[in-house]
Simulated scan of single mutants.
Amino acid sequence: MAERTQERDRDRDRERERALPRIRLDQPRVRRPRLLPEYDPEAFGRLSERIARFLGTGRFLVWMTLTVVVWIGWNVFVPSSLRFDEYPFIFLTLALSLQASYAAPLILLAQNRQDDRDRVNLEQDRKQNERSIADTEYLTREIAALRMGLGEVATRDWMRSELQDLLKDLESRDGERRDGRRQGERRDLFPPEGHGRSDVPDR
């Protein structure tokens, strides 16, 4: 009985493993189909920047003015059978409001992208400034160390002054030796009593 129940449990486990999909961690997950359409946010952002840039030019104002003038002129001066938007120009008002409702979010999106770029540029400038400050401090410390080291190095003028002092000292000593020799010769000619004698008797 126990063996049969164990076999049944094993069969159930095998059926469960077959029924459940096996999840493998060494492979990427299969993307689920999305109901909403997918789009490239970068491409859409670039398109919005182009549109916003065009909306801020004089060319857009000229074309907009010409379109409104032609629209109104056509619906006022053309015969009634050819008019498509008579006074009070409801279709023109709807078109302008629709254009404004799309232009505002596009301009905001372009401004947000520009703000992101400015933020990145400011961060890069800040890091560059920090590196420049660190390099400047390092160079300042190196220059100070070089100055301190140069203070201990013998310069040409210092060597000249030292050699001149040594030369003067040698000349003065040489003069003193000459004077000493002369005085010694005189002393040798007339030695004083007891000079050169030692207390120890000769053997």
Rank of each mutant, 00 (worst) to 15 (best):
D174Q: 12
E171D: 11
R203F: 09
N112H: 08
K168S: 06
P21F: 05
E193T: 13
I23V: 01
D179N: 07
E15Q: 15
S97F: 13
L122D: 07
I23W: 03
N112Q: 14
P105N: 14
A103G: 14
V120P: 00
K168T: 11
L167S: 01
R83Q: 14
D169R: 11
Y102N: 12
V30G: 01
Y102P: 04
A110T: 06
E15N: 13
A110S: 15
F190C: 12
E142Y: 12
A144D: 15
R8Y: 14
N75A: 08
P37S: 03
Q114S: 09
R187W: 01
V68C: 07
L82F: 07
V62S: 07
V69N: 00
G175F: 14
V30T: 09
P41R: 02
L163R: 04
E17R: 12
A52H: 02
D116A: 11
R24M: 06
E17F: 11
R181G: 09
R117N: 06
E162F: 11
D169N: 04
I90S: 14
P28M: 00
E3I: 00
Y87T: 13
D202G: 13
R32P: 00
L106W: 09
R203C: 11
A154P: 02
R113K: 07
L166R: 10
G45R: 06
R113A: 10
V69E: 01
V153R: 01
R83T: 08
Q27P: 01
G73F: 13
T136Q: 13
L82Y: 14
V68N: 09
L150G: 08
Q27N: 04
R31H: 03
L82E: 06
V30N: 08
Q27K: 03
E86P: 14
P41I: 00
R4P: 07
R10D: 15
L163I: 05
E193M: 03
A52C: 04
S198G: 12
L170N: 05
F54W: 02
I23Y: 08
Q124T: 00
H195G: 11
R29M: 01
T140C: 15
I107L: 13
D85Y: 13
Y87W: 11
L189K: 05
P21N: 09
R18N: 14
I23M: 06
L47Q: 06
L35M: 08
G58N: 02
V153L: 09
G194C: 10
T57A: 04
E7L: 12
R141I: 15
S198P: 03
D26L: 05
R203L: 08
R119I: 04
R182G: 02
E152A: 15
V76S: 14
S161I: 13
L139G: 08
E130D: 11
D165K: 05
N121Y: 00
R182V: 05
E171I: 01
R160W: 10
W63H: 03
V70E: 08
A134I: 02
S198N: 12
R31Y: 01
E185A: 03
I133L: 12
E171R: 09
R131S: 12
G58K: 02
W158L: 14
R83S: 06
L92P: 12
L20C: 06
V78H: 13
S48M: 07
S101K: 10
T5C: 07
S101H: 07
R182W: 01
P88I: 13
R177I: 09
G149N: 04
G56Y: 00
